[in-house]
Design a protein around this nucleic acid. Structure first.
Lengths: 137, 137
DNA sequence: GCAATACTTCATCATCTATTGAAATGAGTG
DNA sequence: CACTCATTTCAATAGATGATGAAGTATTGC
């Protein structure tokens, strides 16, 4: 991403306007980015991690408490290795934690933030999937 | 996804245990899924949409108010068409709304939920990117 | 140590995604 | 209606991602 940045520069010859759109209150835009690239990347990375049905389902399960990989795989109906990979990704993002107990490894949600995130998203999706298609302009 | 589901079935011959992990309190697991597949898909879909740095940056900008496509493209430093595609996706997920004003089309965040989501994620990422790597087992 | 169980890593592959230039559409203006 | 500006759609392409079986590591018990 951000391969080239002067695409529309070549399109118009005269100098580009400061704010080409602003009707009136849009005249002075704060163009400085409030948030660093690093933070954006990190936040997006977390979202991407939970933005997958299988992984989200995993998190939903974990919201009920600790589970080991075998259990999770059984509940998900997919291979062990699949679930392990998914958990690996979630762990890399610090969304889940694991603890060893003998031969088993128990996974759990990393913190309450994640729980809130998952629950609120599901709640939002719940509201949402009823009035399914409409347009807004 | 969910191509085949009986992978580990072939691995062990004897009947699979109900709860192969549970030390004691994990004996009786509520295996029923609390949330429908549809909801999970929808929630994941929203997360996936915001789980991209470019789109998240777009949303960050929109959290400051309405912007038109030209402005957003200029601020992002990418092509117009790129931004348009990104907005199209966000709109398909009902994350942003648009309104026409003459030749311009102004985009805005769809609701306060989204604003909260974006802001809390960025806040979380802010906490997070300081203590960058550590392990948890 | 050896077998068994629990889990992870590796390599592969099909599928999905993001970005892009070019061409198309839509809205305002003379 | 021709012209311009704003935005979208199209098609192609490079790159990312997710699932999977096989092979590897770790822990327990004999």
């Amino acid at each position: 991403m951000s391969a080239r940045k002067n695409v529309e520069e070549t399109a118009h010859v005269h100098a580009p306007r400061e704010a080409p759109c602003g009707p009136d209150e849009h005249a002075k835009r704060p163009k400085a980015r409030k948030v660093s690239d690093r933070q954006i990347e990190r936040a997006a990375s977390i979202f991407r991690a939970v933005g997958d049905p299988s992984r989200l389902r995993l998190l939903e399960r974990l919201s009920a408490g600790e589970w080991c990989v075998t259990e999770l795989a059984e509940a998900a109906g997919t291979g062990l290795s699949t679930v392990s990979q998914q958990l690996k990704l979630l762990r890399a993002e610090r969304i889940v934690t694991r603890r060893r107990a003998g031969k088993h490894i128990y996974y759990a949600l990393a913190d309450r933030h994640i729980l809130d995130l998952v629950e609120s998203a599901i709640a939002h999706a719940d509201e949402d999937h009823r009035h399914d298609d409409h347009d807004d302009d």
